[in-house]
Design a protein around this nucleic acid. Structure first.
Lengths: 389, 389
DNA sequence: GGCAAATAATTCAACCGTTGAACAAATCGC
DNA sequence: GCGATTTGTTCAACGGTTGAATTATTTGCC
């Protein structure tokens, strides 16, 4: 709306994206005529656009779907499974991960290396990630895919240029990530943001506005509003872990007091339950151990207080429990939902859905890879007119 | 991006808006050539668009501004001061208010009636507001203005259709406001939302993302992200007053405990300072009375805890203290700023500006009227092609 | 088996908005 | 008074969409 001028070419760019997304979001492969009807463009226009998209390798025609009644059979259109693909990468405290997602959104390659990433330091870790990326690229090319770009998820604060300003749990500060990948263009983003994007596109029919809560050692949040990830004015949104639950509570490593992280962070829960890890916690919760159930209920209550504040402020439709919270959701969810019910005025007539992440631990990498293919889906003209590399 | 198709006509619609906004936002009346340079459209195109806008009464040519150097003098373009105008209305607990803003954004008419609105009930209040609206329309027409629409600010929760679902301080519930204005089309919105819009457009160069905090009997908030008001998934964003400051604090009338309203609501501050009203509070704070300063500091601290949580989550650039907080800002600001400084991790390198509202008590009405003219500025084609009424 | 009805996709002239270059208008400086 | 300079308009060309006509391919009915 406040943007630049619109020329004739912009028309085509926009409508190319519109047609491509129609094919992407349809339940069954649509015909040109279906797309024309859905977009209210002419069949002539849709045909012309589809020709461009097929020529550019973004769409493929499939066999006519059998249909009742008379008439020439329709040629189904699907996103090409051998066109451009996205590479997702993730650096986390105890693993590195990569995945390749094709234009249709299906995961074509997946690779995880579990190891504590803290001792190595940025240079070593980034070198290893570059190795993962090279493996993934080789795998993708064997399947006829072309990597259109890469996105890297990092558990920390990232500037719009891709510099990791601060990643407390990795011990990183001011690490220039894109510089380490000389070949491939890499965008870097916060792990919770990319996981939220992953959830957003995980299944059709999900909520368009939600809060994705990423429970790790810290607690991050990805905010999706009206189907769009909100990164904050300067890219630093989502610091849910340092929202105050009790202003005079225990001191946090951030310098303040009573932050949510002190009540519902992974370390706080493990300490309260005297557990060795998330899996231990889950097993003992399942067996009904009271100390564990109490620790989870307390964490859920604190989380619920903070999340209820967010819901009061943003009126999101859903809260997604991700990261380590996903497997623990059966025990966290009741307390979170109860706090929302009692603290959110509008909950009475507009209830908020609290549910575990559907992608679980994969959310961030899959979201990262998905974000790459999604930029192509949204701006196919840029891909079609790219300089051949 | 996810929207509908773009036809040739959409081109023109978009570019009409672009040209109009260039004229609106320029420091001095720009020439057609200036607009062409700024938008990277051709002079030919700009000329054609400007012709339409002048013919439609949205732009006016003014005398050539004297300029150094050779060349044909440029005709300056300004928004018409006699074209469409917006009517802003406000219902609050202790006053009704109206104002008319012309296309250029200047306030052309202003009217306030102070009286407690609680006893009358919705029907009586709405009848009186309709009277204010009629007066304003008469006044506007005498000045050659045509009212393009009206927006009404209400201290409560409003559905997208304009039904006041709940306005606790007025004692309203499920009041269908647009039905009461049979003549004029009225959009209804929350008072804090419209006040935030007022602040957004009050002066050029303000922040594009900020939290407007409206201190009244309740505490509302208007959230502006990237220059756009965010209303929430279902229109119920901004319930800052019921964010928990201390989860086990005093009971709130909403049913929960420890809501911000119990610490920083108008009534809580007055009680703590044993003051009779905001003005009393301000005078006694100015004279340095310790009990009053303490009460304001305590309120500011609670407000700061809640606002710091918002900043952590949304990474807004500024926090605007509005409503009764505006005149009290000198005493509230330090505590709010201190909480943000200590609780927001990113504040160290991206400080947050805490400042009083520039429009003060007028923010909501002016914002309401401004929202009407702004829709014309953003979609001039709709106005130009309107059916002559 | 043949033919009408129905639906899909393509072709093509017309239309519309922007472009770019040429041109007319108006002023300044020398 | 004349060239330089800048503004604003005119007009043919271009690119993209439209809508109607045409071609392509199937089903169903006689």
């Amino acid at each position: 709306m406040t943007d630049g001028p619109v020329r004739q070419a912009s028309l085509r760019e926009h409508n190319l994206g519109l047609v491509l997304r129609q094919a992407a979001n349809a339940l069954r492969p649509p015909s040109r005529a279906d797309i024309a009807a859905a977009t209210s463009l002419t069949r002539a226009t849709v045909s012309a656009l589809v020709d461009d998209l097929i020529a550019g390798g973004l769409l493929t025609e499939v066999e006519p779907t059998p249909r009742a009644g008379a008439g020439r059979p329709a040629a189904g259109l699907v996103l090409s499974a051998s066109g451009p693909a996205g590479l997702g990468l993730e650096i986390n405290v105890d693993y590195l991960s990569a995945c390749v997602v094709d234009l249709a959104g299906t995961v074509r390659h997946r690779d995880v290396r579990r190891a504590d990433q803290r001792p190595g330091g940025p240079d070593q870790v980034l070198a290893e990630v570059a190795g993962l990326a090279a493996d993934a690229r080789a795998h993708a090319e064997r399947e006829g895919l072309v990597l259109a770009g890469a996105a890297l998820a990092v558990p920390g604060l990232v500037t719009p240029e891709g510099v990791v300003r601060l990643a407390p749990n990795l011990g990183w500060r001011d690490v220039d990530v894109p510089a380490a990948f000389d070949g491939l263009p890499v965008t870097v983003d916060n792990e919770a943001n990319l996981a939220a994007l992953g959830e957003l596109h995980a299944g059709p029919g999900g909520p368009a506005s939600f809060l994705y809560v990423s429970g790790e050692i810290g607690i991050g949040a990805g905010i999706v509003l009206h189907g769009t990830l909100f990164r904050g004015a300067r890219g630093w949104s989502g610091e849910l872990g340092h929202v105050a639950v009790r202003p005079d509570g225990p001191a946090c490593r951030c310098g303040a007091r009573g932050c949510l992280e002190q009540y519902a962070g992974q370390e706080a829960i493990l300490r309260a339950a005297a557990a060795t890890g998330t899996e231990d916690l889950r097993v003992r919760a399942e067996s009904g151990e009271l100390a564990v159930l109490g620790a989870l209920a307390a964490a859920g209550e604190a989380l619920g207080v903070a999340v209820a504040g967010v819901v009061n402020l943003l009126d999101v439709e859903a809260v997604v429990l991700g990261g380590v919270y996903a497997p623990l959701a059966p025990w966290l969810r009741p307390a979170v939902a109860a706090e929302i019910r009692s603290r959110v005025l509008t909950d009475a007539w507009s209830p908020v859905d609290v549910r575990p992440s559907v992608l679980g631990a994969d959310a961030a990498v899959v979201g990262a890879a998905g974000s790459v293919v999604r930029t192509i889906r949204n701006h196919p003209a840029r891909w079609l007119t790219r300089t051949v590399s």
